[in-house]
Design a protein around this nucleic acid. Structure first.
Lengths: 199, 199, 199, 199
DNA sequence: TATGAATGAGGGTTCATTCAT
DNA sequence: CATGAATGAACCCTCATTCAT
């Protein structure tokens, strides 16, 4: 990569970081392009060299952040010695929830913006600089499992949506109960969800 | 109610209807106060006599629409002779999903904007002209049930969030599968969720 | 007309005047909406209450100015006792040229922007506050004439375009000759043009 | 010419061609320097090595295109055996109109931008690679003519402006009549214009 | 020569809100 | 109560021009 390309990469990252900061603190709709470039320390026009508009940068951020979370969970899972699918999934779920609990602005950003479509593209994306491939790993998980499942994609869909939807209010507002109180119920529900789809 | 009060009520309703129309067709962020008053056939300033801003009217709309859906489901449930709690809940869930499936713009509006806080206030709200009280009914349901549950509020929370989250993409985009295909999996999951909280 | 309507009319006129000033001095493309409202002494948004954009106000200005010129010529013609069509036309042409010669920025504005379509609409327009109707007068002129012409509209078209096109450079830059030197040639040409279309 | 000079010439021509394409399709004001260099397949900065701005390239284009039209007419005229000045002029006029009629975007470009000043410089310009010199030819035409004229330059001026002004709307919009219908009137007018300046 | 990333002033336009009528 | 003309800050986006490479 030439000097110029490195500089370009840096500019792009500066914009992504600035946008993330502002989206998580002020919210997307109250964040203007002007805010972003000011925070990133560059001229307005520069933004448009890298992104087409606010929603373009948002999409790239969500994809990036969501895949980051899952990859982290996956990496840690590999160090555990769990061969049971149910336990694997719960390990990942728990790991993800802990990450979101630890970074509430991240949670806010993700759960307000994550759609199933974006989730899938985040999972499938395999950027050159990411070493691990979450999607391949998750396929492998199901294939390695002794028990087989009726519709793995639907199962994952239901779990992802369930976790995303229920953790939001619990983590941020302790409503209806704090996350630690909710977890046992969630996890038991998820276990039963999984079992309900066994073949 | 005097003549003046009736006129005021009509204005307010005209504004609510106009706002709902526009929010569901153009989306909230592309709907301006000007659009609303124009569609409602009155002057800009009049809006501010009834609502403080766009988000005020949105909140009132969601509350109204959400409680409408549940009350409709509840009314129909009463005509069934079901005393089993599990079946009752699934009846309501199914009824709600069918309503959302039949009115996709309503689904879009609700699921983008419904939060647990708003849901609760919608349930508890007991407007003068609504004859039935959904919240009282739901409390009664749990009390009449033979089986007792560890934390009824958490159970309802999980079900509401689960249904809201999973039906959105399935109904609107057939992703990951169409709603009819998803239903059996959802319903079985909900049944097991309920059982997991039995005492 | 109520007080409010009078104020509106004044605002509109202030905008038209400001725009005309700027268009004739800086040119249309170097004149911004900001410039116009600043000169008119009002807020930017006000502009959009009266005109849709820069080209809307330009069109209205040209129409207005062009019809003004012709109406003035016509009014003066009525005081002359000329019943010969050829003389009438040349009277008007001369009158128009003298007006343009006296107000060079008007000439510049008109000849850069006048198209046959706009000219026709300017002639036919009969705003409530204009007492005389140029189009009716011109029809009448041809009808009253002893001599008849093959295609009066084409004749007028050719004369208008000829005068507009040839006077521009002559008045503004004395090229190829000053307007006073050009006039005899122009007028003789026009006379022959007219005769060439006699029936 | 060295290799480098040839390359430079090619770049310049590529820019001219690109600009002409864009000016005639999108119009000058909607064409940006970016558009031009993109279409020409080179970098933005390169434009400024050859032209000072958009209006510089426009001027060069008009000059080039206008002289091209006249030279073509002139070349064809030479093959005819016409010694009568009036017939010569009408041959050229007709030839020019037919060219403009056949290439409407050229007509649009020319007549919107042609001024007498530019016309003269186009006529007088004698680029190295053009073999024939229109200006010399036209001087010769008048000198060879039996009949003498009061002010040849004014005569040409009036004809050029007349043709340019009247053909525009007729060819592009059939207003007030299509060009074929207009021609006889135009040509008869031009003949009389010429005769009116005989000495 | 040639490049193209970076600039940033300035364009048009929208719209929530106010307030005199 | 109701109006709607007026406001003006704030928005997004374009683009001619520069300059280090």
């Amino acid at each position: 990569m030439g000097k110029v390309d490195i500089k370009k990469q840096q500019k792009k990252e500066a914009l992504l970081n600035a946008a993330y900061d502002l989206f998580t603190t002020k919210g997307i709709h109250k964040t203007s392009i002007s805010d972003i470039v000011e925070q990133a320390g560059m001229a307005k026009g520069t933004f448009y060299l890298y992104f087409s508009d606010k929603y373009d940068i948002r999409k790239k951020l969500i994809t990036h952040k969501a895949s980051q979370i899952f990859r982290k969970a996956m990496t840690d899972l590999k160090e555990e010695q769990t061969d049971n699918l149910e336990d694997c999934i719960l390990f990942i779920v728990n790991h993800v929830i802990d990450q979101l609990d630890a970074d509430k602005s991240l949670l806010n950003f993700i759960s307000k913006n994550l759609s199933w479509g974006i989730f899938k593209s985040a999972m499938i994306s395999k950027p050159a600089d990411d070493e691990v491939d979450f999607y391949a790993f998750y396929i492998e998980l199901f294939e390695a499992s002794e028990k087989k499942y009726q519709n793995p994609e639907v199962l994952v869909y239901m779990i992802v949506e369930f976790v995303n939807a229920t953790s939001h209010s619990s983590i941020l507002y302790n409503e209806p109960v704090p996350i630690d109180e909710l977890k046992p119920f969630m996890y038991e529900s998820i276990r039963r969800m999984i079992r309900s789809m066994e073949m």
